[in-house]
Design a protein around this nucleic acid. Structure first.
Length: 122
RNA sequence: CCAGGGGGCCGGGCAGCCGCGCGUUUCCGCAAGGGAUGCGAGGAAAGUCCGGGCUCCACGAAGUAAGGGUGGCGGGUAACGCCCGCCGUGGGAAACCAUAGGGAAAGUGCCACAGAGAGCAGACCGCCCCGCUGGUCGGGGCAAGGGUGAAAGGGUGCGGUAAGAGCGCACCGGGAGGCUGGCGACAGUCUCCGCACGGCAAACCCCACCCGGAGCAAGGCCAAAUAGGGACUUCGCGCCCCUUCACCGGGGCAGGAACACUUCGUUCCGAGAAGUCCGGGUUGGCUGCUUGAGCAGGGGAGCAAUCCUCCGCCCAGAUGAAUGGCUGCCCCCGCUUCGGCGGGACAGAACCCGGCUUACAGGCCCCCUGGCAUU
RNA sequence: UGGGGUGUAGCCAAGUGGUAAGGCACCGGUUUUUGGUAUCGGCAUUCGCAGGUUCGAUCCCUGCCACCCCAG
C-alpha cells in the first residue's frame, strides 16, 4: 500500500499503460517489493462511486499482483469514468494485459506535464 | 369508486465460497503470525444553516457601548432561528394550507411614471348660483359624478340642498374609554367620538430579549530529529575572596549524592525552578475515541410537543481511510417471439448529540373533506 | 473543519428599489469595382434557481445550486 504523496508523484514518472477502465502506472521503487496505490479523482463521481471503484481495484490487484506484478515496482491504478459499471471480468483481462505490456517495457506516451493553469475552459 | 387534503413508516431478503476493519479469546509464545468468535454506514451518514456538550484561551461580578441575531401568546427542551397548542391575518366550496405577525400621533427618509392634486391636500373634465347679458366671458360655491394611479383623506342607503358635503340619520368599518371571559395573544359587549392625520420599518431607526473567542488538525502524553539557543516575568540564591555602585561572572569552603553499610578516600552536584513568547526541529505513535440529553418494550401524566417511572440491551470507530469478487433462490419494475433478457433510487460515519434544509426508484399503513352509486 | 468571493447577451462587464449602460463578437444596410476601414441600425437577456417583502425586485430578506479562492 502506497501512502505518501511523494510516492504517487514518483510513479507518475514511470511507465504508463492506459486502458478503457483505468490507467496503470508502474515505477521501480528500489527494493521495497510489490506495492500498489489507487487514485480516483473527484471528477469521476461522488464519494460512493469513488469508494466503490477503489474497492474493485483492490480486489483486482489482490488477485493479479502476486503472480503478474512487476517485482520491486510501485503499481498505481487511476480510476476513469467507466470504472464503476464496467464488467469485472473485462477489467481483469485488461489489467493482466496492461501488466504484461508494462513488464515488456512498453508504455503509452506520457502526458505533457506542467501545462498552463487550467482556467476559463477545458 | 372518483377527485382532493393531512400524518406516519420501510428503503430489498435468504444462503454458499474467497477476501477487508476493529474488539474478545486461544496457540508455539519475545514478537511477527495462525485458529475461534462477535460486531461492522444513513434516513438523510449530505449541505454545514442554527443550537448545545466537550477541550483550550481570555475574563473580578454586574452593567454600558459596538457588532450580530430573534420578534403574536402560552407551553416543551440542555438549548435553539426547532417542535407542540392557541390567537390574529390571507387563500380555499371543504378537509386544510400559508404566515419575519412588536412600534408609523420619537424622529429622519422614500412613494417613479401617470395625474389638477401623493402628504397638516387638490380642482383637469365637470355640477350649481349670481352679474353683464349670450360668450372660447367675469365673480363665487361644491367635491357627489368622470378621468389618472398600487394608493385620491371611510363604505352603502335614505334624508337634505341652488348644487353639494358625516351636514343629519341607519347599518357596516375605524378610534378612545369601560365592563365581561381568558394565564395570555385576543375575543365579545356597552358608551362616547361624525372620524384628514395613508403606505413602506425584509429603508435608517426605536423597543424588548439573546450572544466572550476558537475549534478534536481542540487539548494531553511519548519517541525521533534539530538544538542544547534568546527575551521577559515571578520565587529563590549559607559563608569567604577577586571584580563591580549593584546585578552578573570566576575561585574556594560549608552542605548533598554515588561507590552495599561505618570511617577514610575518589568522583559528581554545589543554584536554580516555574510560566509566557520568539527562534529552530518534527510531520511518527499513543490518548481524546466512543456508554450516550443512547435504543427497544411496558405503565403513568398531558389535547399535543414532551416528561416521569420500571425492565431489558450494548449497537462502527477507519486514518491513501474498513463492506469487495463470484454464484444460487425469492421480491419489485420494464421488454417479451412466453424460452428468457435487462434493471433495482438518493447516497458513505470521521469527536458526539438536538434540529433545519436539500436529494430520493419503488412500496405500505392510518385519518379527514367533497362527489357519484347502492343499502 | 473554518472563512471569503462570484453568477447580468456567445465573451468581458456597469448598474444596488421605478422596465438593464458600454466594449468585443455576430447579423443587416450605406460608402467602395471587391475586401478591409468608416458609419447607421439590430440583438427574443425568465439578471444562477425557488419562495417572500413592496404598488413595483437585477437590487431587500430567506432557502437552495454551481464555480472559484484562502487558512490549518
Amino acid at each position: 500500500m502506497i501512502r505518501r504523496r511523494a510516492d504517487f508523484l514518483a510513479a507518475n514518472r514511470g511507465l504508463r499503460v492506459a486502458r478503457p477502465g483505468f490507467v496503470l502506472l508502474a515505477h521501480p521503487n528500489g527494493g521495497q517489493g510489490k506495492r500498489y496505490g489507487i487514485t480516483v479523482t473527484k471528477k469521476v463521481g461522488n464519494a460512493v462511486v469513488r469508494n466503490r471503484i477503489k474497492r474493485r481495484f483492490r480486489e483486482l490487484l489482490r488477485a493479479a499482483l502476486p503472480e503478474h506484478g512487476l517485482p520491486d515496482h510501485d503499481h498505481v491504478l487511476i480510476g476513469r469514468d467507466g470504472g464503476i459499471e464496467r464488467d469485472f471480468a473485462k477489467l481483469r483481462d485488461e489489467l493482466s494485459d496492461a501488466l504484461a505490456r508494462a513488464a515488456a517495457g512498453k508504455g503509452d506516451p506520457r502526458r505533457n506535464p506542467r501545462r498552463g493553469r487550467r482556467k476559463g475552459g477545458r
